[in-house]
């Protein structure tokens, strides 16, 4: 068993003005190189959980701990549902990807671009580097966001509904690329989705959130090795998740 990379311990979130608790007592570990899917109904607090892990929100109680190694340049890389708002429309695809490298003050623009080009070709994906976001397809835009989130080699990759804004074909393409990137980089990843197919095809374990306030209803383990492409091969865990969601 790989070493634990992320620990989420008894995390709860309450909003003082809202209708009480959103998340109650969420606990799980993520091993190094493991891909965890978090599923649940709309508004159950999946994204809130992800933002707490990212350090964008403080939990009301409980804690999260991320163990970084020397090869990690940054703690987390994050991809959001809305790629149009997430990308910078005044920058080309390549210059969007180099944005996180600009935090390295000593690195020159030429070096940043070289680094990004090499990284993209290592990943084996094809992006229109000179194009502006408004000249790209939805799938290309979301992949750009993924590459940007990874360029500084984060200890943890967080994906917040990464496919929700994509149409069928783009969704398929991005999922395929993402699966190969996750495997190639041996990434530790937590992703939130309300699509069960994404969850059962891409992850090692699925955390099912349900209830009011939201608690961990069930953790479903996927035995077969990644990458999986055939939804029929994961029928059983899919039904298990559905069942857990419907009890709520």
């Amino acid at each position: 068993m790989n070493a634990v990379r992320l620990s989420v311990r008894n995390v709860s979130k309450t909003y003082p003005k809202g209708d009480g608790s959103v998340l109650a007592d969420i606990t799980f570990d993520v091993a190094n190189g493991e891909v965890i899917a978090v599923v649940g109904r709309n508004g159950c607090g999946k994204s809130t959980l992800l933002q707490i892990i990212a350090g964008l929100l403080e939990p009301s109680s409980g804690s999260t701990e991320l163990r970084e190694t020397e090869s990690d340049d940054i703690a987390v890389g994050m991809v959001f549902q809305d790629y149009d708002k997430s990308l910078l429309p005044w920058r080309s695809c390549l210059d969007n990807i180099t944005l996180p490298l600009e935090a390295h003050k000593h690195m020159r623009a030429l070096e940043r671009r070289e680094r990004a080009r090499a990284f993209i070709s290592d990943l084996g994906i094809d992006l229109p580097l000179k194009n502006y976001p408004y000249e790209m397809s939805g799938g290309q835009k979301q992949l750009t966001c993924v590459v940007r989130a990874l360029i500084r080699r984060p200890a943890l990759l967080l994906l917040d509904e990464p496919f929700a804004a994509l149409d069928y074909f783009n969704r398929h393409e991005v999922r395929k690329s993402l699966q190969s990137i996750l495997a190639a980089m041996n990434l530790t990843c937590v992703f939130v989705s309300h699509e069960l197919d994404d969850a059962v095809l891409m992850s090692d374990r699925v955390i099912v959130l349900a209830g009011v306030p939201t608690t961990t209803r069930r953790i479903v383990i996927l035995e077969s090795p990644r990458p999986r492409t055939d939804p029929d091969s994961v029928k059983r865990p899919r039904e298990e998740i559905l069942e857990a969601l419907e009890v709520a």
Binding site: M78, L88, W90, L99, A103
Partner: peptide, 28 residues
């Protein structure tokens, strides 16, 4: 967009860099 500011912060950019590289061009 809030997401755009967040992207800047998560990328490790300083407050000043987020202002210069994200907020100003976005407001332009």
């Amino acid at each position: 967009p809030k997401v755009r500011r967040t992207v800047g912060r998560l990328s490790g950019l300083s407050r000043a860099a987020v202002f210069r590289k994200i907020i100003i061009p976005d407001a332009l």
